[in-house]
Simulated scan of single mutants.
Amino acid sequence: QLGKLLIKCSTIFLISFSSQICAIAHVTAKTMPHKDAECRRGSTPNIHDPATRELSVVVPSYNEEDRLPLMMDEALDYLEKRQKRDPSFTYEVIVVNDGSKDQTAKVAKEYCKKYGSDKVRVISLEKNRGKGGAVRTGVFSSRGKKILMADADGATKFADIEKVEEGLKNLQPWPKQMAISCGSRAHLEKDSIAKRSYFRTLLMYGFHFLVWFLCVKEIRDTQCGFKLLTREAALQTFSNLHIERW
C-alpha cells in the first residue's frame, strides 16, 4: 500500500560555506513576488516568531485542482479528529499555490472558507518558483513547533504522520532542538518498477546512484515529499536553501 511508510530518520547537518560562495548563491537565487496570504486578516506569520501551533502542514501545489481536494479531505479529516481527541493539539495547513494556471487557488480557498483562516491559509505566488521555492515560502510563514512537508498529490497516507512523529521522538535529545524525520517509500520500489518503462527505470536507478554516491547514503528515498522538521531545523535548513527548483 502506497500509504505505508518505512521511516528513516536523520539529525540535521549544517554545512558552512565561505563568504564568497555564499555571496554567489545569494546573487543566483531567484526572488519572486507573491501575493499576501489569502483568507487571512492581519500580518503574515513569520518563522522567526515564537511558535503558536503544535503543527504546520505545508502543501506546495502547482496545477493541482484535481488532486488537491482528495489530499485536503484526508488531511483535514485526520487533523480534526485528532484535535477532538486532544483539544491541546493545534494545527494549520498552508497551501502554497505556486503560480498555478488552473483553479488550484480557488479550490484551496474553499477549504479556507470551510475550516476558517486560522486553520487553513492559502499563499499564492504570482510566478512559478518550483517546489523548493514554494515549500520555503510556506515554511517561512508557518506557526508550528513542528513543520510537515506534504505533497498535494496525496501519495502518502496522511495518518502516517504518526510514524514520522515517532521517528522524530526517537531522535531525542535533539541537538539545539534540530531534528528531521523523513518518510520513505523505498520498500515499494519493486511494485513501482513493474509500472514504469525500462527507460524511466534506468533513469530512476541512475538518479538514486548519484544521490547515494555524491550526497546521502543512509536515506534511500530522498524524494519522498513527507518530511517532519522541528521549527529550529526548518529555519536553519530553508535559510540556507538557494536552489528553488527540484
Rank of each mutant, 00 (worst) to 15 (best):
A179E: 04
K190E: 15
W174S: 03
P33D: 08
R85V: 04
E38S: 14
A234K: 07
S56Y: 08
F89I: 12
K157E: 14
V57T: 05
H48R: 10
S43T: 10
L202S: 12
D153A: 04
P45V: 02
T28H: 12
G133F: 02
E165F: 12
A233S: 08
V57L: 10
E244Q: 13
A233V: 03
V96Q: 07
S16M: 04
D36F: 09
L214T: 05
I243Y: 11
A108P: 11
D191W: 13
P175T: 06
K127I: 11
I12K: 03
M178C: 14
K163G: 00
A233L: 04
L79R: 06
S124M: 02
D153G: 01
N97I: 06
L70M: 05
A152L: 02
I7W: 02
A75G: 01
L70E: 05
G138N: 04
M71V: 07
G144H: 10
A159I: 03
N63D: 13
T52I: 14
C39Y: 05
L14E: 09
G225M: 12
L5A: 01
A233N: 01
V96E: 05
K4W: 08
P50Y: 03
Q177W: 07
I161Q: 00
G144D: 08
S192F: 15
Y62K: 07
K145C: 14
E162C: 00
P69D: 05
R41A: 14
T90N: 10
K8D: 11
S142I: 06
T44P: 03
E162I: 02
S88W: 01
T222A: 13
V59T: 00
L202I: 06
C182A: 15
L14F: 04
T31G: 08
L68D: 06
S100W: 03
D102L: 05
A155P: 00
E110S: 15
C9Y: 01
S181T: 00
S192I: 12
S43I: 11
S88F: 08
L203A: 14
R231W: 07
E162M: 01
M204G: 04
I7K: 00
L2H: 06
C22H: 10
E65N: 04
L203V: 13
G130E: 00
A233W: 02
I243Q: 08
F199P: 00
Y111I: 09
K30N: 13
E64H: 10
V216G: 02
Q177Y: 09
F207R: 14
M204H: 14
C112N: 09
G132W: 00
L2P: 13
L228P: 05
E244D: 12
T201S: 15
S61L: 03
Q177I: 02
A134R: 01
Q223A: 14
D98N: 15
V107M: 09
E92I: 12
K84N: 05
L202Y: 12
S18L: 07
M149K: 10
L202P: 00
T28Q: 14
D86V: 02
L171K: 06
E166N: 09
H187E: 10
I161S: 00
Q103C: 12
R143S: 15
L70G: 10
V164N: 01
L203F: 14
D221C: 13
F238G: 01
R196E: 14
V96P: 03
R53A: 14
Y115H: 15
K127W: 04
P45F: 08
F89K: 10
